[in-house]
Design a protein around this nucleic acid. Structure first.
Lengths: 190, 190
DNA sequence: TATTTAGGTAAACACACGTTTACATATCGA
DNA sequence: TCGATATGTAAACGTGTGTTTACCTAAATA
């Protein structure tokens, strides 16, 4: 009761509302626990709906995962960047959490352990993140720059969320945060 | 037949040899498929032994995973480093594969999706890698440097092994390799 | 209001997988 | 040689989990 912000049960029957509730709950739990350790019942319990509705409305857990990714992967973020403040902007908008904006990378990374989910995540990662960033970086060594972005993002998020070693006792250590920002900035400058 | 280098069946009964065969097969498959997608039967089939022997000799899949990590995590590599050639040495000995030496990081990273396996991997990662590296780095910002090492290693290996995007068509692109080496070198220099 | 249909539910199903059990047999000491 | 023990095996077991089924009921339609 005190733990989660579970959705209240639908009193009136409304398929669209139910679908949205499932999507929202799924996004939350996939982010938190990863694809493999997230059960369909975890999602439907949180959404306050019946377990069968995941298969009915989305065609199964895997398709639901794909639907969550499609919903969350918003590439417009690339257009909001500028090379002057790339490091700061990326860190604020893409790596650290921002209220109102969902960071898709943790969900994507939560799929690497499952071969089927990974295939889906990989396709979206390529089309919605890697390619747009490559294009945005422009000509010289664009793919290498995009790879550097992916490597640092992936490494940092995995380290922070899955491998809580020092210096992550409470939050990101200032010196590490500073390094991160410089790393991202260097991608567009070096 | 043509695919794997499966162990031949033990003709003579020898518990030690069997244990070794299981460890060797487990190391191979854990590295290749990760903890979650590796089945006990996958391991025992490759080792050419009965499936029950994993539980009998190691106490279960999780304990076997721990035994593989214990066997593979060799910290002596830290003592072989020097700050002059840190980037080159780390890249050669710790990131890229070296014949005869097993890189423990992919096995460790293959456990992040499973909460129980992750706990084991995290403990060993801390004790056998993070702390030794921190100590080796020495005084100033040692933990931040160790974190940078972890982030870049983790990001690169995840990217290369789990998310094969460009520029990884065949092997590591030279410009990316060059960047990686410089990143590692900068950890001890900046 | 009577009928149909879409939305929702509980239970059962199917399958995968780690583990345990009961049994077989090679090895070795007395 | 002859038990005793260690080693190995096949089969069954228990459980977790995604999915399907059969059924129920509120909402919509005429």
């Amino acid at each position: 009761m005190a733990t989660g912000a579970a959705e209240p049960k639908n009193k009136t029957r409304d398929a669209d509302r139910t679908r949205e509730a499932i999507l929202k709950a799924a996004q939350h739990i996939f982010t938190k626990k990863g694809f493999v350790e997230t059960g369909v019942r975890d999602i439907t319990d949180r959404a306050g709906v019946n377990q069968a509705l995941v298969s009915r409305y989305f065609g199964g857990k895997l398709k639901l995962f794909e639907a969550v990714l499609e919903k969350v992967l918003d590439v417009r973020i690339v257009t909001e960047l500028d090379k002057e403040n790339f490091g700061k902007l990326v860190l604020a908008n893409f790596i650290l959490s921002t209220p109102g904006r969902v960071n898709p990378l943790p969900i994507l990374l939560g799929a690497v352990a499952d071969s089927k989910a990974r295939r889906i995540a990989l396709r979206l990662l390529h089309d919605r993140i890697f390619v747009p960033f490559s294009v945005w970086f422009g000509s010289e060594e664009a793919e290498t720059r995009a790879a550097r972005f992916m490597i640092i993002s992936t490494g940092f998020l995995t380290y922070r969320d899955q491998l809580p070693l020092p210096p992550f006792a409470d939050e990101v250590h200032p010196s590490l945060r500073q390094w991160l920002e410089a790393e991202f900035q260097a991608i567009v400058e070096d």
